[in-house]
Design a protein around this nucleic acid. Structure first.
Lengths: 157, 157
DNA sequence: ACGGATATCGCAACGGGTTGCGTTAACGAC
DNA sequence: GTCGTTAACGCAACCCGTTGCGATATCCGT
């Protein structure tokens, strides 16, 4: 729904150029990679590694986990995606990192929200100033309790 | 420094009372749990689950991972420890949570630093104000690049 | 179109952690 | 001390992700 750009979108989101970007680096364009790119080009937002493997298997039943994970690593090096770890420690991939953003995860209800650069500014700025530490926002995952769950705790517990 | 209380500390850090706290809840005091408590009472700071299993095995070669992890869950419920996930998503346990603190992990050199409530105040306060979200500081792990590694990148890359 | 260099594949095994289930044993009651 | 209840144990299997290695196939030069 509403890919940010041209009107007739044929799923061009840098994915079309991947083949050449790989080759330019001496890397190869294989059927397995094509499959994963296909999957990724239809994924928006966040996906776990296992989900990606699953979806690849739908397109090509012979898909192997190791190949998928290895290709994900390559694509991350190319900057086409980023990964972080959810509240449970599992991998979560961010496709098409148009804007770096972190995540907020409520341990009460399990809901996840995105937080943008503006909201994280306080944290990022503070660490940058005090330590010279450059926060990788896209890898940031913060756990806690959302307003609703906090209130619920206050009420009944 | 300054274990909150008596002067001569014989590793009494709530560990001594665990047995009774368990029983008070209808839970049981078993040799396996005793072993884990023994290990925990000598661990300070951060340990991974695997490390704890390892150390338990040193005391009791028959130790089983599942038992250790299950007991860790119980102890966490009792508030005797907390766990978070490192940059690689692996579990990390914080023993004797005297003061909640988060972690900073440099993806360049791999070093980890603790950040206290004061340093996280900016973040915590901002999210609290804007969303009513109560951050679980002890579960917070921030990835990025430390001053040194950032500088190195600027120089040569 | 062919052939060589080597990136990638697929397999199998591993590592950390979790889960289901039948068996054992801790604990409270008598 | 004995007994019954049931928490906890240990095993085996699983899940997600990673790694080593021999086999395959992509790509480049000719």
């Amino acid at each position: 729904m509403c890919a940010s750009g041209s009107s007739t979108v044929t799923e061009d989101s840098s994915w079309t150029g991947v083949r050449d970007r790989l080759r330019a680096r001496g890397l190869r364009w294989t059927p397995q990679r094509r499959t994963l790119i296909e999957v990724l080009s239809h994924a928006d937002g966040h996906v776990t590694g296992a989900e990606l493997v699953e979806r690849c298997r739908e397109l090509d039943a012979t898909t192997t986990p190791s190949t998928v994970y290895r290709t994900l690593d390559v694509l991350e090096e190319l900057g086409l995606l980023r990964h972080s770890h959810g509240a449970d420690g599992r991998e979560e991939f961010h496709v098409q990192p148009e804007a770096a953003h972190g995540h907020l995860h409520c341990i009460g209800c399990g809901t996840t929200w995105e937080i943008g650069a503006d909201e994280a500014a306080a944290l990022v700025g503070s660490l940058e100033r005090r330590r010279g530490f450059a926060v990788d926002l896209s890898h940031l995952s913060i756990a806690g309790r959302c307003a609703t769950c906090s209130a619920a705790l206050g009420d009944q517990d």
